[in-house]
């Protein structure tokens, strides 16, 4: 299941949804991304997340489908927030269940690596020097290419 919205998400509630009435999966792996206070040599005060409505959801669905094709997974949950976010706020949630841990660990990492290089989101940071759009990192692409 895919969600893209401004509102915050409740980690505990999302975890419960992944395990509720799920007797066949023995592993749950989750990832949460947060707004941190320092990037590329500047103090960061906050973040604005822009996206391409429609394409974003389709892109996340496609990434989820690819993960399910590569690994034997139970449930996949992706939440990505948009709009203005303050320091320490949650940005993204990925939760994956599987029979065994290896598939769940790998699929969770795969989803994040693909999300970071394919899903149409753009971050604009507010720093001590003003606002700036974050530039895509070569290391993120290399990380995604390894799959």
């Amino acid at each position: 299941m895919i969600s893209v919205h401004c509102e915050d998400f409740d980690f505990a509630a999302e975890y419960q949804k992944l395990i509720k009435d799920n007797k066949s999966d023995g592993a749950v792996v989750t990832f949460v991304g947060l707004v941190r206070d320092f990037n590329e040599g500047s103090s960061v005060n906050g973040l604005f997340l822009e996206h391409y409505p429609g394409m974003t959801e389709n892109s996340l669905k496609d990434i989820s489908r690819q993960a399910k094709e590569r690994w034997s997974l139970g449930r996949v949950r992706i939440i990505h927030r948009i709009g203005q976010l303050e320091l320490g706020e949650q940005i993204v949630f990925v939760g994956v269940t599987s029979m065994h841990r290896k598939s769940a660990f790998e699929a969770c990492e795969f989803i994040m690596d693909y999300l970071k290089t394919q899903a149409p989101f753009w971050k604009k940071e507010t720093t001590q020097d003003g606002e700036r759009w974050i530039e895509a990192k070569q290391s993120d692409q290399q990380q995604a290419d390894k799959w």
């Binding site: 391409y52 990505h80 970071k116 290089t117 149409p120 753009w122 759009w133 895509a136």
Partner: peptide, 10 residues
Amino acid sequence: VAFFPPVTGG
């Protein structure tokens, strides 16, 4: 048709 810079979400 949409033009945009490389993506930076996550």
